[in-house]
Design a protein around this nucleic acid. Structure first.
Length: 290
DNA sequence: ATTAATCCCTGGAGGC
DNA sequence: TGCCTCCAGGGATTAA
């Protein structure tokens, strides 16, 4: 094991993937559900489609606080949808942040009457979709099944993997299953001993069944643990959490594989850092040319 | 239609 | 210590 690997283990910090978004959704629900939006306004000069039609939210009641993959979806009383994506660094809360405030939402119907959206790196999105038209959000509109729904079976996953691209890139697309990000993709591929560069359509039905199981188990466990992390986050600033402790591959380049002690390898796949065990996750054979 | 590559954006880490 | 450069990544967009 080298020093680089040790530091990588410590580096990991929570990023909003499905479990965090779900935890945030559960915290927001009792607060926001049923509130009427008095005004939603931009607090920073932001352009483009990441923030749109906020003026339309005025006077609309929030009918539910839902989630689809990593998107928060709040249906409104006149048929619009309020869509929030946290990107890499977005956060929501009742306390006005001192920096990086992007959107504030005045609410009627609750004593905590302003929702603030903070986003350091501006990767997040906060927009109202007129008539719930999601066509401007291709990832959301083409998103695969929710991993914790009953209809997410091994067979469904297998069908979603009918693509010539790598399994890593395919899972990133959100099409075979919703909500997996870079961290959890590396983890489930490690669990099921599938190489990240394996073409998605080379995954067998048995592997798809194992993969589905790994996804469900990991997300369920992560939702439990993220809840703890986020509770700390409310009272303590600069949360580190114990999130990294449960990772077997992600961020552990050079550190020993927990299964076979071979050093974890890091490569780049689909422009993302990718971590795997070169021993347990055997390299795929080259696709035969025809 | 499918797939690959670019770009956005900032703070933290490491180098010197 | 302080400046500089590099790196991280979800998803829209553009290119092939």
């Amino acid at each position: 094991m080298n020093l680089e690997g040790l530091q990588a283990v410590r580096y990991c910090r929570p990023m909003p993937e499905l479990p965090e978004v779900e935890t945030i959704r559960r915290q927001l629900e009792p607060w926001l559900d049923g509130c009427v939006i008095k005004k939603a306004q931009l607090e920073d000069a932001l352009d483009g489609p990441k923030y749109a039609h906020l003026d339309r939210a005025t006077g609309q009641q929030i009918l539910a606080v839902g989630r689809r993959g990593k998107f928060l979806v709040l249906p409104l009383s006149r048929g619009d949808e309020l869509i929030i994506h946290l990107g890499m660094t977005g956060s929501l809360g009742p306390e006005r942040p001192t920096e990086h405030l992007r959107v504030s939402v005045q609410l009627d119907g609750h004593d905590r009457d302003v929702l603030y959206f903070r986003d350091i790196r501006r990767f997040g999105r906060f927009l109202v979709l007129p008539g719930g038209d999601r066509s401007g959000l291709p990832t959301l509109s083409q998103m695969g099944p929710e991993p914790l729904d009953e209809d997410f079976t091994g067979e469904v996953l297998w069908h979603g993997l009918r693509s010539r691209t790598s399994i890593k890139a395919r899972l990133h697309s959100q099409k075979p299953v919703a909500g997996l990000g870079n961290i959890y993709i590396d983890e489930v591929l490690w669990s099921t001993q599938i190489h990240p560069l394996l073409p998605a359509d080379k995954v067998t039905r048995n592997q798809a069944t194992s993969l589905r199981h790994a996804v469900v188990q990991l997300l369920k466990k992560a939702i439990e643990r993220q809840g703890t992390t986020l509770r700390d986050y409310r009272t303590i600033t600069g949360v580190e959490g114990d999130f990294g402790d449960s990772l077997n591959a992600y961020g552990r380049a050079g550190a020993p594989c927990p299964r076979c002690c071979t050093p974890i390898m890091r490569i780049v796949v689909a422009q993302r850092g990718t971590h795997f065990c070169p021993q347990c996750q055997p390299e795929p054979r080259k696709r035969r040319r025809r």
